[in-house]
Nucleic acid binder design. Structure first.
Lengths: 172, 172
DNA sequence: CGATAGTTCCTCAGAACTGAGATACTGTCA
DNA sequence: TGACAGTATCTCAGTTCTGAGGAACTATCG
């Protein structure tokens, strides 16, 4: 493992200390996210769903009929993405579109009876698998981590919103 | 009284308390990750790179010439993905492949002089932007979050490795 | 009203991958 | 030595999205 140490460009070690801490957190956050996501992907795939499809099903299962635009902001996909995902679930017979009586531009997505049955079967195992993936932390640490990540996520989202004017605030 | 024909829980609220905590952490983790990632995506795109391309550049900038397989496990892409990413960076003139003298199957990727110059220019601004995205937490909280996420990520990765035998990465 | 700005969803070209299989090489063992 | 399992990368068809643009509808305001 020879390390050519003669040149000293602007690497991480030359950054201000606070930036080093932030970058380390970013790398660790990304790794933790990917590791848990692998579990979610494997679980969804067992039932023939992509992560995006599963996220839509889960949202509709918990919230009931939901406007496409709201699904979009909640599961964080693009406008084309939500059309694509709902199309696929409609093809599978698990979701249906419904017109919105108050606004003829808007449409709801809702679980069909088949979709509800499928989620009733699938969801408990999915929840157990995610919980197992989180098992590296005890309940107390999980709460601490949730609090910190919530604070982090809200601040970062606010920073994003600054760049792209037109994006709505979300939650205050 | 309701007749519990189905033992399976209908919604999150019916799950065991520890699973509720775990799912909440998962949702919060995903949101925080996406929020910060949006910053990284926007920053990389400003220079004409995808996130994957930028991750390769960053890795090579800090580690020097690296075997493709090692890049693959570090930035978490598929085998086809790493070939694709390196191809694109080679086309841009920022990266070159080098044969490995010890193993004729293996190849290194390394920054070209152009690639090094580009990263010397780009990286400090990128680090500053990530640090700004993390600004919702103070340095002490960032360290706490890093510790918790590291613990979480390692345990979740170990759980993944159990499912898919043959994937021996990480904890040496 | 009518113009116009804003929104909600859909279309579609193509970006950014994934993953199974192919190719080429290495290490092990009888 | 030869058979064979293991490893590193590449190929390529297919998947899952992104985002610019457009059609249809709604809201606002002179």
């Amino acid at each position: 493992m020879a390390k050519p140490r003669n040149i000293a460009p602007a690497t991480t070690a030359d950054l201000p200390a606070d930036q080093q801490v932030a970058l380390k957190l970013w790398v660790t956050l990304a790794r933790a996210y990917h590791a848990v996501q692998q579990q979610a992907v494997a679980d969804a795939r067992r039932d023939g769903f992509s992560i995006g499809e599963f996220a839509v099903l889960e949202l509709l299962y918990h919230r009931g009929p939901t406007l496409l635009g709201e699904i979009q902001t909640r599961i964080l996909v693009s406008s084309g993405g939500i059309t694509y995902l709902v199309d696929r679930l409609v093809d599978k017979g698990l979701v249906e579109r419904r017109d919105c009586p108050d606004d003829r531009r808007a449409r709801y997505a809702a679980l069909t009876p088949d979709g509800t049955r499928a989620m009733r079967r699938i969801f408990p195992r999915h929840a157990a698998r995610i919980a197992a993936a989180m098992h590296g932390l005890g309940v107390r640490d999980q709460r601490d981590a949730t609090r910190l990540l919530k604070q982090l996520g809200l601040a970062a989202a606010a920073a994003s919103a600054d760049d792209s004017p037109g994006a709505q605030t979300g939650a205050h």
